[in-house]
Amino acid sequence: MPLLEVRDLTVEFPTRHGVLRALDRISFSIDAGEILGVVGESGAGKSLTGAAIVGLLERPGHIAGGEIRLDGQRIDNLAAEPLRRIRGRRIGMIFQDPLTTLNPLYTIGRQLTETMQTHMRLSDTEARRKAVGWLDRVGIPAAAQRIDAYPHEFSGGQRQRVVIALALCAEPALIVADEPTTALDVSIQAQIITLLKDLTRDHGTAVMLITHDMGVIAETADRVAVMYAGRIAEIGPVAAVIRHPAHPYSDGLMASIPSLEHRVNRLRQIDGAMPRLDAIPSGCRFHPRCPHVFGRCREQQPELLDAGSTRAACWLHADG
């Protein structure tokens, strides 16, 4: 049984101009110990998916349909208190900006021990010992002294390491990481990605890695889901999606990324832009921009279909 199972998840936002559907029947699963990348451009809905799973959708957004199961148990319909207990204990979170994740008024030692003691039975000395251990494991030098330091005394990269420690210290089964490296410099990004990958493998933690950076996904994830305008366009093993994308959008996306290896005369570009939520096209959401569009695309919205080693929501693969 997969660790996390999301089926037909729909998220809506009522506005005074009507109801906007930000996520439309998203389905995917994550196995224990697996790293699933969720990639997409701004407005595709990837952060919303993460927020819906941990129960942190901002009002007036709400889950309007579908279910989310953790270890077989439904978590989308829980009340505030049971949800809070699950969050932190079984699902850890890493957000983009470590400055706002860490409370500037408390030492990082206090934040770590408090998190652990909320979710596990530990004495103060035990909790502190474990906290030092975590700081050490995420690569903070002189952990035993730095544990009493405040967040502002660390650099950006170190703060993100502390955030990773904070997310992992309650030993959750799943981590939802939303753009964990985007705010960091390239050379620091590399360190953080490696750290995240190593630690989660060591502890068998599953990761839902949300990012717009395909390179990060390529290096870190086992499988990847490509999102477009609130739907999943393609999902499958990372190598397959990158090298042989079956959905024209994934294909265009991969091709528009400039390569380090060689220079081309013109980057392949996808004309147009992602549709706004109040102007979703009929049929397949990508059809106005698709170079392979035909009749059925304009009328019927495709579900995820088998396309060789991946699954793609595209009528080109309708007959297997």
């Binding site: 050379s187 360190q191 390179g215 290096e219």
Partner: peptide
């Protein structure tokens, strides 16, 4: 070299690398 090496590269899926440590 560090910069070029640090950039996550699409064409090298699942690469294991030894990143250079240190802060800016």
């Amino acid at each position: 070299r560090l910069l070029l090496d640090a950039i996550p590269d699409l064409e090298q899926v699942g690469r294991a690398r030894t990143p250079v440590g240190g802060e800016l």
